[in-house]
Design a protein around this nucleic acid. Sequence first.
RNA 1: GGGUAGGUACCGAAGCGGCCAAACGGGGCGGACUGUAAAUCCGCUGGCUUAUGCCUUCAGUGGUUCGAAUCCACUCCUGCCCA
Length: 400
Amino acid sequence: MNESKKKSLPKEVEQLLRGVEKVVEESEFLEKLKLGRPLKVKLGVDPTSPDIHLGHTLGLTKLRQFQDFGHQAVLIIGDFTAMIGDPSGRSVTRPQLTHDQVMQHAATYRDQAMKILDPEKTIIRFNGEWFELMSFEDVIKLNSRVTLQQMLQREDFSLRLAKGHPIRAHEIQYPIMQGWDSVMIRADVELGGTDQLFNIMVGRNLQKEEGQPRQVGIFLPILEGTDGIQKMSKSLNNYIGVTEPPGEMFGKLMNISDSLMLRYYDLLLQESPPADTHPMVAKKELARRITARFHSQADAARALEEFERRFSARDLEAVSLPEFSLSEDSASDVVSIVCAAYARCFNINKSKSEVRRLLAQGSVRINGEKLSDPLAKPELPNGIVLRLDKTRAVRILRPS
RNA sequence: GGGUAGGUACCGAAGCGGCCAAACGGGGCGGACUGUAAAUCCGCUGGCUUAUGCCUUCAGUGGUUCGAAUCCACUCCUGCCCA
């Protein structure tokens, strides 16, 4: 190791461990860094859904940091593990996906991950590469190294056990497979959320048995979803996707609670919110910066401006809205119009009963006036704004 | 394979022949108040060309009954105990 490298090491360690919740084992990590070669840093992702959200970005951002220090990032796309679904933190068996579905997700997933990682310096491996080749005999051998008790100690399983909920045999394969990935790529470091503790430890054990140096587990905090309580996840619908349009991303961020905002500052920006600032102002800043990260400064500035006009000044007229064209002949009632607007402009299927409820409760408005009569056939001149609910409105377009 | 307890709406959970589209809680949604925050309050939460109306739902299929989520038979699924 040369002199300059030696000097920069403390800084490197400090940065790489910033925002990290736990390291197993820190001393081993320091030893590995002193080896003076690029470390193989593994991050596994399961393409169980086509989108990645802010929760995933914690791991990706950390991986990027490793890349920037010259380490080798290995992104494992768990095409085989995704078919099982990680049982971590789950109280029910995940629905099983076909390999085709998984591969479709994987493609979009990779693109999104590369928004954060350096594509030139990232090795991408699919774990199907090795699992596909294993015989049943190999699988049995692999399984013989782990005891059922170890598996069942995990909270998610023991809870299900206690509650009498089923645990299917394939689910306990998951940690074994994830661990085997580490063996196959000879990982030096594996990144993961704190909920990955068990899975990553299995990797360590398997590596040891294979005579490899054990990987170091670096555990990142779990990002709460927009509800502020549960882990951000697609299935709980409390996520902010990295490909969401700027306006939506900004809006979702503005909708979080103040206490969650502190958390997001901490985890996503790795800093504290500005002192002596109104929470709302701080939140706008958070929303702006995160939006800028996944879009552009200009997009973020526009999102902020639109937000202020729309929600602070309550000026729907001046804001860009989806356009809903109404054909001349259709003298439809409000219910059908609103229903169609939801469907065409927002891809949301609302039943007519549901729309009637919204009407009755005063959600639908024109010029701030509530339209509560479902049978009404209101005047809807060209260009007028039809408010559907708190966050959605359309501009009516009539062919002239 | 034997025994036993179960399978109810997004989730948990009542109901155990008519008053059941199904209590209650959670979640979600809408409204009021706000900072698209929190807290609070009110309302909604199967569908339908608003109808003291009709249709589809209580694992599935058949049956008993004027009438079934509720009773019977078989099937499928799950937990627990035994093998």
